[in-house]
Amino acid sequence: MQSFSYEKAQSVEQATGTTGKFIAGGTTLVDLMKLGVETPTQLVDVTALPLAQVETLPNGGLRIGAMVRNSDLAHHPAVGKDYAVLSEALLSGASPQLRNMATTGGNLLQRTRCPYFRDPSYSNCNKRNPGSGCAAIGGHNRMMAILGTSDACIATHPSDMCVALTALEATIQVEGPKGKRSIAIADFYKLPGTTPNVENALEPGELITYVDLPAPRKASKQVYLKLRDRASYEFALASAAVVAEVSGGHVRAVQIALGGVGTRPWRAHEAEAALTGKPATAAHFRAAAEDALKGAKPSSENGFKVELAKRCIVRAMTMASA
């Protein structure tokens, strides 16, 4: 780990006025600094900022401060009541120790677990060294993405929380040297394309301040289903977040997002379109799942994720329609 300066910001203005790298829970950043992947020279601790509240918005939605810890958010009564998919996603991720440290803002910026990204002895990583190539292609790729990949990067987005936020159509509030702005989560994460080093829409100096959730739809049922090899402390092989309104045996409205399979939290628009207005039956769920994975491009070891993700969608939809 290289030497760095450390300061604790007392206000958002002070934080966004620096050129340092923000650190909150540090569960990703410190790990990557120890591995030599991240080499910041200046760290700005944002945990003292007044952004640790969960409050109701005038429109009935929920505003989550960027410094709210994952464990606090998962157990927050309003989240448990109206946004169960978010609570379930949070509790399925990491370990209690990590959740106690990790923050909402930090989780949004979680880096991939791609082993080649995490090991600087591989010089060929387009995320770390743009233009250097991708060691994961042709390497051990069982955990890699099958959706949204490019010739430059096949790294999976690892978060569970962000999959739920994607299904909930969250809005990310940011503040930076040029002022405040709102970014829909659909626009927040970038596909790797030829520039996998650009992972999100944040401009230099911009800080995530809040995550806003729309008002809950009364009739909606929410499910987060995570499939993995072991029962705890593992990233998803495939996961699905579903927010669905099912009545009279028909799917009236549905939002589906997938985890563990995409280079970013993956919104399954095709599946949603295939399901909306259709009978809530296993056959329709399966057909929608087929649509969702149509564009999948597996590598040598992760072809199974295609079928697993389909089954994940079918099961999550079945649960949401029960």
Partner: peptide
């Protein structure tokens, strides 16, 4: 310990 999978308590 995250990528080499061993049984956890829930397993």
């Amino acid at each position: 310990m995250a990528d080499y999978l061993m049984a956890t308590c829930p397993d």
